[in-house]
């Protein structure tokens, strides 16, 4: 069976989306394409259905919080430091036919972070995006199920943000052992 030859995803995207393609980066053989946040779902759908690309599987969606570095709208010009906003969401997609991976990245603002959902492209994005909505507090517009996924329903805050404390319990020493034992009322001898 003959398959159409593989196309370069960057040039293909540049032809169709032009301005929406904000940044392209290569690192250790992995290509990252930063796209306009509002057009993420369109780009992903294009990558999935276009012949010669056929990124047919969504491997992972992960979010990263660049909290302490306040990049704002301007970035400092270095190639590796393209971070216009606080939150970055990466879609790791995989083309089984051409056996290659691609990362499509979009940024969301610190205040009221919003991105369009990719569940219309892959059902697999459903839980992966719900996890990010739960842990990072990024709202995916158009997502059918907005409940929390991992944390209890009444949990306050979004644990994976960098400004959320890890929540350590202090180590018990002889001077504070009584204090720690106070919240272990059921410890029997």
């Amino acid at each position: 069976m003959e398959f159409p030859a593989a196309r370069d995803p960057v040039s293909a995207l540049r032809d169709v989306f032009g301005e929406a393609l904000l940044h392209v980066k290569e690192f250790r053989g992995e290509t990252t394409i930063v796209v306009d946040a509002e057009r993420t779902a369109e780009v992903l759908d294009f990558l999935r259905v276009t012949s010669g690309l056929v990124y047919n599987m969504l491997s992972d969606v992960s979010a990263v919080d660049y909290f302490p570095n306040d990049y704002g709208d301007a970035f400092d010009g270095e190639e590796s430091d393209f971070r216009p906003e606080r939150f970055g969401v990466s879609y790791h997609i995989l083309s089984m036919l051409y056996n290659r991976r691609l990362r499509v990245k979009a940024f969301a603002a610190a205040e009221d972070p919003r991105l369009p959902t990719a569940t219309v492209v892959w059902p697999a994005a459903n839980w992966l995006e719900r996890e990010i909505a739960d842990m990072m507090g990024i709202v995916f517009e158009g997502h059918a199920d907005q409940r929390r996924l991992l944390m209890p329903e009444d949990w306050y805050g979004h644990p994976h943000r960098r400004d959320y404390p890890l929540g350590k319990e202090t180590v018990a020493f002889s001077f504070n052992v009584d204090e720690i034992h106070q919240h272990k009322p059921f410890a029997r001898d």
Binding site: S59, D60, S62, A63, V64, D65, Y66, S90, H92, P123, A124, N126, W127, L128, E131, H160, R162
Partner: peptide, 28 residues
Amino acid sequence: IGCYIHGTGGNKPRRVHFKTPSFIHISA
């Protein structure tokens, strides 16, 4: 099982995310 790491330039990662098969399978 996939591992996503974003470094900081220092000795600790900025973010580590694991794509785990059970998560995907339960969602299906």
